[in-house]
Nucleic acid binder design. Structure first.
Lengths: 205, 205
DNA sequence: TCATCGTTGGACTGCACAGTCCATTCCTAG
DNA sequence: CTAGGAATGGACTGTGCAGTCCAACGATGA
């Protein structure tokens, strides 16, 4: 498999294709993204697309899924590695909302891929699940840190809580999308983060 | 516009087309649903599709969106009109999970349409928003009933809470989908319903 | 019984788009 | 400066699919 990327130049071209495709998918969905529009946006040719992605569109979409997954986590640095205090959670929350806001479009690169790929390409679907799990695990680690610090009930199921947070983000974005407003996302995030943010030292029965 | 449905027979055919299309969209997405597969599934002909839906696939999808919106609310009867007690909320919650479970596939007819249509057809997107809002409003009314009965803080923002619930459902399903398990959905639902179910120590086994 | 309108059948058109193929240019090592 | 592999250009093919068109069938009222 020495085919796909050998030269530095080649790697950059390949990366350019992935990123442009990601943007188009975010804006128009997988179905609304064609190899021709990608080609136009990247000033490449058809042969390059198949040179770097022999598996065609399917493979390209998969690479996009992986890339977006990494980007999403990267966008949450450095807070995602902290999350050991209420302040850190809040900064993380604000940063996340800002990230989606900066996206221009109210859609999660991963979430939108998830729904569309689920019924089309199981392998892409699996990649996305991996991303989601990694994300959830980092949040769960944060919850565990809160518990270790005694800020949160040790009896709470951190994994379940983290799952709820991720789900809330996804659902919040779905509702934010048509409204073109961060409100729904913020509303649901605040609700689900409540147990982490609210109890300033005192626990709520 | 007497074109679309005059006879009883015609109306039934039209409805059959809508429902079959809905099923296919749920299973394969809008992009994965073609007029030919719909034609095959309904034992109709191309001309019938365009006879009943002169606007073509676009119009058909819109009708599906409306229909699914109604179905979703209908599936929550009669609890959705109550929601004045913890028990009612719990029954509603269980019924909803059961509904999605019975769907065979972990996808919300409305939610999956939402993401895919958002970037393709603004009008369909608007229809879905309407459905979502109606849904949210009914839940908000339930919250208000809980408040009126003194079961929930009167100071809570019912509309925001309802938004959070809907968002949680959508997000929960996204995560439930690849896992093929109701867990994530249940996890997030329980978290967001917590303020409604937990208060004043009664119930919540 | 005929006339009219709704319903149905299915062949046909046109296009958008994934994927193929070969020719050409660019880069770098030797 | 040259040979070979990588990178690029772009014409071409095949097909899946939305949408068109016309011809036939069926019911209902006059």
């Amino acid at each position: 498999m020495a085919t796909t990327a050998t030269t530095e130049k080649g790697r950059r071209t390949r990366q350019r294709i992935i990123e442009a495709t990601g943007e188009q998918i975010l804006a128009a969905g997988i179905g609304g993204t064609t190899l021709d529009t990608v080609r136009a946006a990247t000033l490449t040719s058809k042969s390059q697309l198949f040179h770097y992605f022999p598996g065609g569109k399917t493979e390209l979409v998969r690479e996009v899924a992986v890339w977006e997954g990494e980007q999403l986590l990267a966008a949450q640095e450095p807070e995602i590695h902290d999350l050991g205090s209420w302040e850190s959670w809040r900064r993380w929350r604000d940063g996340l909302v800002a990230y989606y806001l900066g996206q221009g479009r109210w859609a999660c690169p991963i979430g939108s891929l998830a729904t569309e790929a689920a019924s089309a390409d199981p392998e892409t679907s699996a990649l996305i699940t991996t991303s989601m799990s990694a994300w959830k695990d980092m949040l769960a680690a944060g919850v565990a840190r809160m518990q270790a610090a005694g800020h949160v009930d040790a009896s709470a199921d951190g994994d379940l809580l983290a799952t709820g947070i991720v789900a809330s983000i996804q659902g919040g974005i779905i509702l934010s999308q048509p409204e073109r407003s961060p409100r729904p996302l913020e509303a649901v995030l605040d609700q689900v983060l409540d147990p982490l943010l609210v109890r300033t030292g005192t626990s709520r029965a």
